[in-house]
Simulated assay, not measured.
Amino acid sequence: MPEKIKKIGVFTSGGDAPGMNAAIRSVVRACAYYNIECVGIYRGYEGLMEGDFKPMDARSVRGIINKGGTILKSARSKEFRTKEGRQKAFEKLNEAGVDALVAIGGDGTFTGALVFNEEYGFPVMGIPGTIDNDIVGTSHTLGFDTAQNTVVEAIDKIRDTASSHNRLFFIEVMGRDVGHIALNTGIAGGAEEILIPEEDLGLDRLVDSLNKSRKSGKSSSIVIVAEGDKIGKNIFELKDYVDENMEGYDVRVSVLGHMQRGGSPSCFDRVLASRMGVKAVDSLLEGKSGYMVGLINNAMELTPLDNAIKGKTKINLELLRVSDIMST
């Protein structure tokens, strides 16, 4: 650990998420507040190995708090997974006089940061940026709130069509390993069923539930499906099964896809990003390293990167119960 940190590098890696730019802005302005230098590292670990650095000051991040995506770009890097790649990165950082890193991303980003920290003793701090909200050590990751709002808006619009034509819509949302987006947006959007990786509803039970909904007087239905749901091989297989086993519904599929990643970050994500950026810089200047900044009980807390990577988030059982009651 350097006796005194004089220059901090910040980068984004992995999938982009709304709020990343706000976090970059926060890191840069926190550095300016403490009169230390800050450099932006372009294209994640690829740019780290190539020395693709650019000095950033308080004015260089003006007008980005409201923008989705990441001005520093993002890329996935196979080379950084090798010792040779990490050696390149270490040399580039030394050449540029960078003393510490703030890594904004998900578990893949944090895995790279942790290995780099362990091999070279290089100070690192993580900020969780992923819409799936699948990182342990924070109640909310950057982009999760914005993605939920995007999905709910889409559900509301699709419901207009479903109601007009007596249609059953399967709507696929992101969530490869966890169902946080699906569960929350399903409740907020008034879905009849919510399919998530954590709960195996089963095809027969799904059909029974939809039949029950129709008998209760519902002429249209919305089913929210997390992309990692295990009931069928994919959402189109679900559609085919329901087509074969139910009559009277015009079944349609809507895959929201990458639209969930984009868009202007919500107020919540902008504030969260600002808090996380300041906490990351503060923690590095206090001599801490190998941690992720997270929101726990509305306070900024630190979680060891190793715990954040290896831990598994849990679905909210209360929300599952609320979902069952609301679909009555």
Score class of each variant (00 low, 15 high):
Val10Pro: 04
Phe11Asp: 03
Ser13His: 11
Gly15Thr: 07
Gly19Lys: 09
Tyr42Gln: 09
Tyr42Asp: 07
Tyr42Ser: 01
Gly51Met: 03
Gly51Ala: 04
Asp52Arg: 11
Met56Val: 02
Ala58Ile: 15
Arg59Phe: 15
Val61Pro: 01
Arg62Trp: 15
Arg62Thr: 03
Gly68Ser: 13
Gly68Tyr: 00
Glu84Met: 10
Gln87Pro: 07
Glu95Ile: 08
Asp99His: 06
Asp99Ser: 06
Val102Gln: 00
Gly108Ser: 03
Gly108Asn: 10
Gly112Thr: 03
Glu118Ala: 04
Val124His: 07
Gly126Gln: 00
Ile127Val: 12
Thr130Ile: 15
Thr146Ala: 05
Val151Glu: 04
Glu153Lys: 06
Ala162Pro: 13
Ser163Ile: 05
His165Asn: 13
His165Tyr: 15
Phe169Asp: 10
Phe170Gly: 02
Met174Tyr: 06
Gly175His: 03
Val178Pro: 01
His180Lys: 05
Thr185Arg: 00
Gly186Glu: 06
Gly186Ser: 10
Ile187Gly: 09
Glu192Val: 13
Glu192Thr: 13
Glu198Leu: 07
Arg205Phe: 13
Leu206Pro: 00
Leu206Thr: 00
Asp208Phe: 11
Arg214Ser: 12
Ser216Leu: 14
Ile224His: 01
Leu238Trp: 01
Leu238Gly: 01
Leu238Ile: 12
Leu238Phe: 05
Glu247Ile: 14
Ser254Gln: 08
Val255Leu: 05
Gly257Val: 07
Arg261Ala: 07
Ser266Tyr: 08
Cys267Lys: 13
Met276Gly: 04
Gly287Phe: 00
Tyr291Asp: 07
Met292Ser: 07
Met292Ala: 09
Gly294Val: 11
Asn298Gly: 05
Ala299Pro: 04
Met300Asn: 06
Met300Glu: 08
Ala308Ile: 01
Ala308Gln: 04
Lys310Ser: 14
Gly311Ile: 05
Asn316Ser: 01
Ser323Ala: 15
Thr328Cys: 07
